[in-house]
Amino acid sequence: MAAKDFDHIIRTAAAALAAGTAGDSRVVARWTASRDLWLTPEVVYELAHDRLILPPEADGRDVLARMDQFRATAIELSGRQPTPDEIRQAAGLLAGVLAAVAEHFTEPEGEALVRALWAVPVPDFVLALDYDLDNDWTGAPAVRAWVVIRDDADPESDEFQDFADGFRDRAWQALAKLGSGRIPYVRFRPESEAKAALAGGAA
């Protein structure tokens, strides 16, 4: 797996988990809906190999233990519907791992967009976000952001269009607040397309 592809897997998983906290049942339902994007052994695959950058000593061992436990949980839950408690536990394990390594895989602009995504209540069909820092076709600095949506989301609904307009606005505002000169290009990607992109080389 190329390092760049793994960055997309980590970013997408982190964005899915950033939807909220385990105490909110709607968030747990969203985590359940988005589990194919984060509750898989692939999310920690490369962390266990040459991309692993751990905090020192005891904290590092704790992250390793969480990673092993998460991998085992992901394998155990594959192919069946997890219970809400299982989702909470798996999300907690992965969140602990990602918190320790996130700085190596995320960019300030991307974090700002993830925060902007979940800053307001969003429709249930929104699952996660992936992004790339890049230049647009004129050479201007840009952020390409893909909002991952459920395959059955209705793009003709007012709910979808209102969300699309609102998130575009929030993305512009988030980058402006950060002082970034990058232009946000917001795109939508059904979950099946996102999974294929993550499996075969993201974006």
Partner: peptide, 25 residues
């Protein structure tokens, strides 16, 4: 600004894949 690169990809990038949610948006 948002549409221009999309139009560029639509007209010239044969590797780009377009989906209906994005297009409707």
């Amino acid at each position: 600004l948002d549409l221009q690169p999309a139009r560029h990809a639509a007209d010239y990038d044969t590797t780009a894949a377009f989906n209906r949610p994005d297009t409707l948006a």
